[in-house]
Write a protein that binds this DNA or RNA. Structure first.
Lengths: 278, 278
DNA sequence: ATCGCGGTATTGTCTGACAATACACATAAA
DNA sequence: TTTATGTGTATTGTCAGACAATACCGCGAT
């Protein structure tokens, strides 16, 4: 098989890089980072930097700048500081800055032209369904609003996706779904349970037979990440939720689209209740 | 206002770059591009290259490599040719190659590690809802299948989005929707009509009040691009379609979610018919 | 006041270099 | 013969410095 690369998460920034950025605020006037640069080229570089993929310089930079943009530090239409400025602010090479900016351009957050600079694109162009952008977006002041938006989206997508899965699933896909459902019931820890839960829903999306539904899995993953804090510890609730999942699994297995759709609606209503109860 | 950057479309590759790539096939053994490189550094560089944003070297490279990946030239798990190889094949600098690859990494198509190389990620990680990836994906052998997938997705999304729009639209958003609908009716050319049609549906997504629905507009744009060839020239059909659109507009205006949802379902059914008729 | 012109600032591109390290191969030991 | 160890090599990551292309600003001339 392939070497399994860890997803570049914004939470995996290495301490070294974070240290560099500590006092690198957007509106800093004059940062004396020139000295640091010379010092680094003199051989003081830390020997054990950048082990995790996500902590390479350009990836960390992209996370930092991307987060600032989504957070609203640079509203749409704003011209960003130029590449030389970023380079100086973070004490990194211009190449690294450029690669970070290219990643943000690829996600629709930025665009640029010679002699003008890079500017923040209007929010409609942002690829909010991108894993990283969604993660930055999820750091909004209150997670309530974010969860509400994602949950509403799930109400639109999942019932229909499940109905399609009930019609078109292959036996292999059914096995995946059933196994995830079973492991949910047998999970020893809440974390294991959540992981199996996520796999269950992702497997359904894959089984829907519509390629365009698969990328929406990032929403479900994000929802479960943020829902974890809300998860109940009550045995009764857990058993109830498990029954709801098993109903979905059964109806997909028996290829009953309408029943499957309704079962998903019940599960989502239950989740809504959990959120509202907080 | 902002400088309006043209979206980087794969169809805007400049002839100069295409010429370079003519005989750059994936399985080429030995390409004698070294000579070209020396020649270029001797000052023979074309004076008028890269006018359109999308035709910058890194953007063109990203399009070319991305298209090859999505097309299946390098199946998931495959290790790509290394950066030096790409650089040599296309007679561009390694920096340009790296920036292109970073863009593809940002879209979930690639990942890489030192001493290993860059490999194609499993298809589930691909950000298919990205504008560029979708465009590459749409170059599939038969557009029938692609259109069917997109259209199915629209059936899932648009009725619910429209129902939300009927509940939560602001007056400004309503004005946008109404204007687009009106301009559809008054359009002089089929192209103008399609443009207004697209704006109509995008405005509804924006009015839905759910930020996560907005990025799905790329699907609608893509659908209409590919649907253009199917568009009828019959006056009766056009009038009928216009009436369906006006029904949607009216129900959003009068804030009747259920009626709006049904009106959208009728329109989509009509579009299905147009596709099927071919 | 309007038009034209050059200067300047900024991204785009190229070149060359070194660092870090996964993998393969050769070599040596049990 | 098999296993363990060390060495080499290939590849991405990062840095530095240079020049090209050109949008915008301000100046001068008509």
């Amino acid at each position: 098989m392939r070497p399994k690369p860890l997803a570049a998460l914004d939470s995996t920034l290495n301490p070294d890089f974070l240290e560099r950025m500590r006092d690198a605020k957007p509106n800093k006037e004059k940062s004396p980072a020139k000295a640091a640069s010379t010092e680094r080229s003199a051989g003081v570089r830390r020997p054990d930097a950048a082990r995790i993929p996500g902590s390479s310089v350009h990836a960390s930079l992209a996370s930092e700048i991307g987060l600032r943009i989504v957070r609203g530090d640079y509203p749409p239409g704003t011209i960003l500081p130029n590449e030389a400025k970023w380079s100086e602010t973070f004490s990194v090479s211009r190449s690294a800055v450029r690669e970070a900016i290219k990643m943000l351009m690829a996600k629709g957050l930025l665009a640029s032209r010679p002699k003008i600079g890079s500017w923040v694109e209007p929010k409609e162009r942002w690829n909010l369904l991108d894993r990283d952008v969604l993660a930055w977006y999820a750091t909004s002041p209150d997670r309530e609003v974010f969860l509400k938006t994602v949950q509403e989206f799930r109400h639109i997508i999942e019932p229909e996706a499940t109905a399609f899965a009930a019609m078109r699933r292959t036996d292999e896909q059914m096995a995946e779904i059933s196994q995830a459902c079973r492991e949910m019931g047998e999970a020893a820890s809440l974390q294991d349970r959540t992981r199996a839960d996520t796999r269950f829903h992702l497997a359904i999306l894959r089984a829907s037979g519509n390629d365009l539904l698969v990328p929406l899995g990032v929403l479900i993953e994000s929802a479960f990440d943020h829902l974890f804090a809300y998860t109940t510890r009550e045995i009764d609730d857990l058993n109830h939720a498990q029954k709801l999942h098993e109903a979905i699994e059964k109806n997909i297995r028996l290829q009953r689209p309408d029943a499957a759709r309704n079962a998903v609606r019940k599960l989502l209503a239950n989740t809504d209740g959990v959120i509202r109860a907080r």
